[in-house]
């Protein structure tokens, strides 16, 4: 019989307990990133950038040198870091409000430049930290604190498909959308996150992994219902898969 696998804390996570709500999948994604980094790199080879939003304290969790960026500016900050420290692996961790609303310009242009960085994009269709307001990725019909009657295209505009949009650019080496709502998808997400970091190490340029994620608290759902919402409502709007690979 094979020895049982023993799980411990990856070296790329600090001892700080996550502050995330029960059923939120930020923790899963944090762990996936930390596992991938630990499997591939030494701590001093990596510099991360935290966003504004629920993951604002990511600098307390990722156990390497970290930056906290202004809202939406993580790709610009990462550009500055990577240009000054080209041998480091530089990544940003950003939510949908941060990346696809206030930081859209920074995202698109970092991608168009083919900036050799890795972006992990958490799409849960809502502003979590500020209390459940409408995000650029909120689904049509979805109720939020600023679309209390449900999002309509006429009143609130349409959801933005970030990965599809970025896949039209020449800069990126890898654009993929994954989910972490079940074990199979978690394993697949890790595979693509690993590929994104490997691309950077290989000097292939910009990569972005969009991770469909949950927000039970602001969605007003139980953790289980939230996972179901991802598979039943979000995936049809945001299909999983690799949208661009060079």
């Amino acid at each position: 019989m094979a020895a049982p696998a023993i799980y411990g804390r990856p070296k790329f996570l600090t001892d700080a307990p996550f502050h995330y709500c029960p059923g939120c999948t930020h923790g899963i994604v944090h762990r996936l990133i930390a596992e991938v980094l630990g499997e591939k790199f030494e701590q001093d080879e990596v510099i991360g950038v935290a966003p504004v939003g629920c993951a604002v304290f990511a600098y307390n969790y990722f156990n390497c040198d970290m930056f906290e960026a202004a809202h939406g500016r993580a790709p610009a900050v990462a550009t500055g870091i990577k240009r000054a420290q080209p041998d480091k692996i530089v990544f940003t961790y950003q939510g949908d409000g941060d990346l696809a609303s206030i930081g859209m310009a920074e995202t698109v242009h970092a991608a168009a430049r083919g900036e050799n960085i890795t972006i992990i994009f958490i799409n849960n269709g809502i502003y979590g930290m500020t209390g459940g307001q409408m995000a650029p990725t909120t689904l049509i019909g979805e109720k939020t604190s600023t679309s209390p009657f449900g999002r309509t295209a006429a009143a609130n505009g349409n959801p933005i498909h970030v990965s599809e949009m970025l896949a039209t650019l020449n800069g990126p080496s890898l654009i993929a959308r994954v989910s972490v709502h079940d074990v199979k998808n978690v394993l697949n997400a890790k595979k693509l996150i690993a590929k994104a970091f490997q691309n950077q190490a290989d000097g292939k340029g910009f990569s972005l992994i969009e991770v469909l994620s949950t927000c039970p608290t602001n969605w007003g759902k139980s953790p289980l219902e939230a996972l179901q919402f991802v598979s039943e409502r979000m995936i049809p709007e945001y299909p999983l898969g690799t949208l661009k690979e060079v």
Binding site: F67, R73, A76, V77
Partner: peptide, 20 residues
């Protein structure tokens, strides 16, 4: 040298490089 997409991005690139 990077010609940034905006002055906002430019100063944030400075933030990144200066932070190193």
């Amino acid at each position: 040298f990077v010609q940034a997409e905006s002055e906002v991005a430019a100063i944030n690139m400075v933030y990144g490089a200066a932070g190193t």
